[in-house]
């Protein structure tokens, strides 16, 4: 049985003739994590966007199985500042999810349900955006800097959640400056 979810061969990318990365080859199977690291401006987010199919690569080929079933959280968290927490959840179709209350409680968001998102702190907004990841049913989870702005508890919570997801056979791609103690393949963009 084929368990490969992503297969990339010799991917290069350049913007306005400035080369970001060159000849990257990697693959990802079910139950595996891929940690993309690198200094600022090395093209981590761009690589994520190439995997997502938003940005086309300059050279090379990339194949993703089941393109439409990806759970993605980027720098921009797709929250509407002028809507309340519950409205935002509705926007993403999560307001009736059976596990919603469990996670809201775990992340200390339950008492903010009617608060307008713009009045939440950065970390709280990040947690709210992460709810979409927790409640996903995708095979592939792609996260761009998921740990930025989180306190210790939330950090551990996210980490444990991701470990659990890996055990159930999902695949994860994430970028991070720091090592976050998830056993994963590492792709260093320099």
């Amino acid at each position: 049985m084929n368990t490969e979810l992503i297969k990339a061969e010799n991917i290069s990318f350049k913007i306005n003739e400035n080369r970001l990365f060159h000849n990257l080859t990697f693959s990802l199977n079910k139950g595996e994590a891929l940690h993309i690291t690198g200094s600022n401006g090395s093209g981590k987010s761009t690589l994520i966007r190439i995997i997502l199919g938003i940005t086309p690569q300059s050279k090379g080929s990339i194949m993703i199985i089941n393109n439409n079933n990806i759970c993605y959280l980027g720098h921009k968290n797709a929250l509407k500042g002028y809507l309340s927490v519950i409205d935002n959840l509705m926007l993403h179709g999560l307001n009736n999810h059976k596990d919603l209350n469990y996670y809201l409680e775990k992340l200390d968001l339950i008492k903010f349900l009617d608060v307008v998102v713009a009045n939440l702190s950065f970390g709280q907004q990040k947690k709210l955006a992460l709810l979409r990841v927790f409640l996903n049913d995708s095979d592939l989870i792609i996260l761009d800097e998921p740990f930025v702005g989180l306190d210790k508890d939330a950090h551990d919570f996210v980490k444990n959640f991701l470990l659990k997801e890996l055990e159930t056979g999902k695949a994860i791609v994430y970028t991070s400056h720091i090592d976050c103690e998830i056993e994963s393949k590492v792709l260093n963009l320099q």
């Binding site: 997502l52 938003i54 439409n68 990806i70 993605y72 980027g74 720098h75 797709a78 509407k80 500042g81």
Partner: peptide
């Protein structure tokens, strides 16, 4: 503009066919 700035557009083109 708003959907572009807050990342909703990205989410949309990933998830919606």
């Amino acid at each position: 503009l708003e959907d572009y700035n807050d990342g909703t557009l990205e989410q949309t083109i990933i998830s919606i066919s």
